[in-house]
Simulated assay, not measured.
Amino acid sequence: MKTSKPTTNEMQAVEQTIGKILRWGVIVAATIMIIGLLLYLMSGSLGVATHYHVKNFSELLQGLVTGKPYAVMMTGIFALILTPVLRVVVSIYSFYREHDSLYMVITSLVLVILLTSFWLGIEFHL
């Protein structure tokens, strides 16, 4: 089933959604970071040894469950990093709705590059 060309109102709604995603992503990430900072100030320690780096998500989750300030702050950074990635995903949908295949392909390629860089960062960090 072929979808009809979206109206100006629909496209404005998508643009507003993208704006809200970016705004709320930053607000949520900043809030998580502030909570981590407050935990650090209250405990006086990040909860890990000096020069320690989390190696996988299970370690991060374990740190969150135990209330380690470093894990909370890293989660805030992770949320901040994911915010523009989510914007790229919504943009792909927007270009799909506009039947703009060139920009849909380009934006999909950007998403693949982002995901590949995350994967490579995880692989080479370990």
Results as ranks from 00 to 15, higher is better:
Met1Pro: 08
Lys2Asp: 06
Lys2Leu: 11
Ser4Asp: 15
Pro6Ala: 09
Pro6Gly: 07
Thr7Gln: 14
Asn9Arg: 13
Met11Ala: 08
Gln12His: 14
Val14Pro: 00
Gln16Phe: 11
Gly19Arg: 02
Gly19Ala: 02
Gly19Leu: 01
Lys20Tyr: 11
Leu22Lys: 11
Arg23Gly: 04
Gly25Lys: 14
Val26Lys: 03
Met33Asn: 06
Ile34Asp: 06
Ile35Leu: 11
Ile35Thr: 11
Ile35Lys: 02
Leu38Ser: 06
Tyr40Pro: 00
Gly44Cys: 07
Ser45Gly: 05
Val48Arg: 03
Ala49Gln: 08
Thr50Glu: 09
His51Gly: 04
His53Cys: 02
Ser58Arg: 15
Leu61Cys: 05
Leu61Gly: 07
Leu61Phe: 13
Leu61Gln: 07
Leu64Ile: 00
Leu64Arg: 00
Lys68Thr: 03
Lys68Ser: 04
Pro69Cys: 09
Pro69Asp: 08
Tyr70Leu: 15
Ala71Ile: 04
Ala71Cys: 05
Val72Pro: 03
Val72Asn: 01
Val72Tyr: 01
Val72Thr: 11
Met73Ile: 11
Met74His: 02
Ile77Trp: 07
Ile77Arg: 04
Ala79Glu: 03
Leu82Ile: 15
Thr83His: 09
Pro84Trp: 14
Pro84Gly: 12
Pro84Ser: 10
Leu86Ile: 12
Arg87Gln: 08
Arg87Pro: 02
Val89Ser: 02
Ser91Asp: 10
Ile92Pro: 06
Ser94Met: 02
Arg97Asn: 08
Glu98Pro: 01
Asp100Lys: 14
Asp100His: 12
Ser101Ile: 09
Ser101Arg: 10
Tyr103Cys: 09
Val105Ile: 14
Val105Asp: 13
Ser108Ile: 09
Val112Trp: 09
Val112Glu: 07
Leu114Trp: 10
Leu114Tyr: 09
Ser117Lys: 08
Phe118Met: 11
Gly121Phe: 04
His125Ala: 03
